[in-house]
C-alpha cells in the first residue's frame, strides 16, 4: 500500500479528517469511509453522472476526482439536500412528477440539476436538457426528469449549493 495522506473534507456541513491512499476516489471515500451511500457508481468511466456531487458548489463526477484533490473543499451529496421530514424542492418535484423509476440515476440527476439552478434559477427546457447531458437514465426517457427540474425552478427552489470556496 502506498503512503496514506491526510485529507480534510467538509461534507454536508460536517468536518471530516481522513487518511486515504492517494488513489482512493472521492466517491469511494464518501460511500465506504463516510457511509454516504446516496452517491451511486453507475459506469465508473465518467459518463453516466450517477456519482455527481458538488465540490465547492460545483457539480462534478466524484468517480473522476481523487479524494486528495478535494482536500480542504466543501462537498455536498444528496444526503445534504433534504431529509424525509423536509424534502428539497428538487426531491419533492421528482416525486410529484414521477421523475424516477428505479431511482439509480436520481441522486446524480438532482445534484446536476441543483448545479444548474444555482447558476441559472430560471432555465428554459432546452437549458435543462443541456445541463443534464452528463447524466444517463435508463428508465424514464428523461421527459419527467426535465419536467421535475422545471417545476422545482418554478417554486423558486432556494438551492442549498455551497458558495464557491477557493482552495
Amino acid at each position: 500500500m502506498s503512503k496514506t495522506v491526510p485529507v480534510r473534507l467538509e461534507v454536508n456541513g460536517v468536518e471530516h479528517q481522513l487518511d486515504v491512499e492517494p488513489r482512493v476516489l472521492l466517491v469511494h471515500a464518501l460511500r465506504d469511509r463516510l457511509g454516504l451511500t446516496g452517491t451511486h457508481v453507475g459506469c465508473d468511466t465518467s459518463n453516466c453522472g450517477a456519482c455527481t456531487v458538488h465540490l465547492n458548489g460545483r457539480a462534478v463526477k466524484s468517480c473522476t476526482v481523487l479524494a486528495v484533490q478535494a482536500d480542504g473543499a466543501a462537498v455536498t451529496t444528496i444526503e445534504g439536500m433534504g431529509n424525509e421530514q423536509q424534502l428539497h424542492p428538487l426531491q419533492e418535484a421528482f416525486w410529484n412528477d414521477h421523475g424516477l423509476q428505479c431511482g439509480y440515476c436520481t441522486p446524480g440527476m438532482i445534484m446536476a440539476a441543483a448545479g444548474l439552478l444555482a447558476e441559472n434559477p430560471n432555465p428554459t427546457e432546452s437549458e435543462v436538457r443541456h445541463a443534464l447531458e452528463g447524466n444517463l437514465c435508463r428508465c424514464t426517457g428523461y421527459h419527467n426528469i426535465v419536467k421535475a427540474v422545471l417545476d422545482a425552478a418554478a417554486v423558486g427552489s432556494g438551492v442549498t449549493a455551497q458558495p464557491e470556496v477557493k482552495a
Binding site: A59, V60, K61, T64, A112, G115, L116, A131, E133, G134
Partner: peptide, 9 residues
C-alpha cells in the same frame, strides 16, 4: 466539451 460536470474540472 463533454458535459457541465466535466467542464467544471
Amino acid at each position: 466539451i463533454a458535459d457541465p460536470q466535466v467542464r467544471n474540472r
